[in-house]
């Protein structure tokens, strides 16, 4: 029953986030700040993870298909499919649930325990809109990060397989181009946009409604990461079933 209470309160929070808007000249500065914190601040971790995991995907594929009957372009093909369909949108989103999600929960949670949210409310500011809306808007740039992850993941796969001698440059590039479906990229971006909304709102919910002190801020960040990851996995399953099955 408590789960339904949280689901209901989460949707009410979403509703209040899109009502009684903060002045645009205040809001635009907040959005720029959030883009800096949430998107620009995540570029390096996303680039680093994508490049290395792309390399690992290529090596793993190469090591598991050592058969003379399989075409040489399979490594490139498998790397592209893994990176575009799952690794870049889903795995990076789970990493972001840890990085961006805990940042959002702890920053809003700290505002809650230090009465900064109460201060906003007694001033008559819609604290939901003021705090959560800029995060949602800034995370709408999240597909940019995933595009970067896709590119660097495939590049990592190329570097690992070509320079470690698992594939030739020609075979790998041919594999990348083999049976390419634009819809797979569209599917990845649809997932990414939904994940971006989840990444902005579930951690905000956990920060906003937390109670207690500094210790509880830490606990709330932890719970927020778990729930954001669970919801991402569920949405991933549903969207894949709807769009690809």
């Amino acid at each position: 029953m408590k789960l339904f209470f949280h689901i209901g309160r989460y949707f009410l929070m979403i509703k209040y986030t899109f009502t009684k808007f903060t002045k645009w000249n205040v809001l635009k500065k907040l959005i720029v700040q959030e883009i800096d914190d949430l998107i620009i601040g995540s570029i390096w971790i996303v680039a680093f993870m994508s490049f290395l995991v792309g390399g690992v995907v290529a090596i793993q594929t190469a090591l598991n298909i050592e058969s003379p009957f399989l075409p040489g372009n399979l490594i490139g093909f498998a790397t592209r499919q893994s990176v575009i369909l799952e690794f870049a949108p889903t795995l990076i989103s789970i990493i972001m649930a840890g990085k961006v999600g805990s940042f959002i929960t702890s920053s809003i949670g700290t505002m809650r325990v230090t009465e900064q949210i109460d201060a906003l409310e007694v001033m008559g500011v819609n604290s939901f809109n003021y705090l959560i809306f800029p995060k949602i808007i800034s995370l709408m740039l999240y597909p940019f990060l995933i595009t970067l992850a896709m590119f660097l993941g495939i590049l990592g796969g190329y570097v690992a397989s070509v320079y470690a001698g698992f594939s030739t440059s020609f075979d790998f590039i041919q594999g990348i181009q083999l049976d390419f479906k634009v819809f797979h990229v569209i599917y990845a971006y649809i997932k990414t946009t939904l994940f971006a909304f989840i990444l902005a709102t579930i951690p905000s919910y956990h920060g906003f409604f937390m109670k207690g002190g500094a210790l509880e801020v830490g606990k709330a960040s932890n719970i927020s990461f778990v729930w954001t990851s669970i919801v991402i996995i569920i949405i991933n399953f549903v969207v894949t079933q709807l769009l690809l099955a």
Binding site: Q33, T110, M111, T114, E115, Q116, D118, A119, V122, M123, G124
Partner: peptide, 20 residues
């Protein structure tokens, strides 16, 4: 309520200044 809020000033126990 919105009009009233503009006429109220509040000093919180921990000051509640915006850290950022």
């Amino acid at each position: 309520v919105a009009n009233l809020r503009k006429e109220v000033g509040t000093v919180f126990q921990g000051s509640a200044l915006f850290d950022s």
